[in-house]
């Protein structure tokens, strides 16, 4: 009982934070948090990787997870679309509420969940198919469009949103792997957008890219924010500062501190956060 109320309190506290944040960043609407994590614990076999994480991630904002490697930020991200299901030894406790539903319930089909939660990985992973086939993969398996014209529309719209249309419109039938690293990553983002998800998870999306490609992706993230709830894991603090409005700092499997990005970077409450941000460790 008490823990639940504590979590509620904490949730309220963060809702307040979000409000402050929004007023600062001049966002008109204050929406209810899109994703709410409540008491998430993750175990890999015997080893516990995450300890009681509670966090709200609002819509139309970019939330960044930072922290030293192995701190559990990617593990937490993979809890949101239940990607941890694919690892045999992994066990997740706690509630992950997406749009008011706890997705960790047995009755929730991860297929359904993942159709509305897109994900982009560290290494660009286009399928060994044509650019076109890469983009229509999601709509095809979910049966969102049947006709060629519908699919064509989806491809164009998705690639436009990902800022790749102009570069590839003449060679849609070439393999996705023939693109450069940055283009591949944008292709992957277009592939995720094609099923029109509400949330996009990004797991260090720029760590394999050069600075120019990184800049493009960051620009893209900022644009996409208008329509999606974006959650990004990054090892680069400057990237977190550039693209995110809310930042959460993880350390040793615990969520140390979360709040508006500015606050975290300028006035952290926890000394560990301060140490990390100032480069004492990590």
């Amino acid at each position: 009982m008490t823990t639940t109320s504590m979590q509620l309190n904490r949730g309220l506290e963060e809702a307040v934070l979000t409000t402050q944040l929004d007023s600062k960043t001049n966002i008109q609407t204050i929406e209810a948090p899109k994703v709410q994590a409540q008491g998430i614990n993750v175990f890999y076999g015997e080893k516990q990787a995450l300890f009681d994480v509670n966090l709200d991630m609002p819509s139309k904002l970019v939330t960044a997870f930072i922290g030293p490697s192995g701190c559990g930020k990617s593990t937490f991200l993979r809890c949101i679309n239940r990607m941890n299901d694919t690892i045999d030894t992994c066990r997740v406790d706690g509630k992950m509420i997406v749009d008011g539903t706890d997705v960790n319930q047995k009755s929730i089909d991860p297929v359904m969940l993942r159709a509305s939660v897109g994900m982009v990985f560290q290494k660009p992973n286009p399928f060994p198919k044509s650019i076109y086939e890469n983009v229509v993969y999601g709509p095809r398996i979910h049966g969102l469009a049947q006709k060629k014209s519908e699919l064509d529309n989806i491809v164009e719209a998705s690639l436009r949103k990902a800022g790749l249309w102009e570069e590839v419109k003449d060679r849609l039938d070439q393999p996705g792997t023939s693109l450069s690293g940055g283009q591949q990553q944008r292709l992957v983002i277009a592939r995720a957008i094609a099923v029109d998800p509400e949330i996009i998870l990004m797991d260090e999306p720029c760590s394999a890219l050069d600075p120019i490609a990184t800049a493009k992706i960051e620009e893209l993230i900022d644009e996409l924010r208008q329509n999606y709830c974006i959650i990004i894991v990054t090892h680069s603090m400057s990237q977190a500062a550039r693209v995110s409005q809310q930042t959460a700092f993880f350390h040793m499997g615990k969520l140390v501190e979360a709040g508006p990005t500015e606050t975290i970077f300028t006035n952290p409450r926890d000394t560990r956060t301060q140490d990390y941000i100032t480069g004492r460790f990590g």
């Binding site: 089909d109 297929v111 359904m112 159709a115 509305s116 398996i141 979910h142 049966g143 969102l144 099923v195 029109d196 509400e198």
Partner: peptide, 15 residues
């Protein structure tokens, strides 16, 4: 999105 969700839902069982 709602339309999409409905489609995904309806095909889920068969899939």
């Amino acid at each position: 999105r709602q339309r999409n969700q409905a489609i995904v839902q309806s095909r889920l069982e068969a899939r």
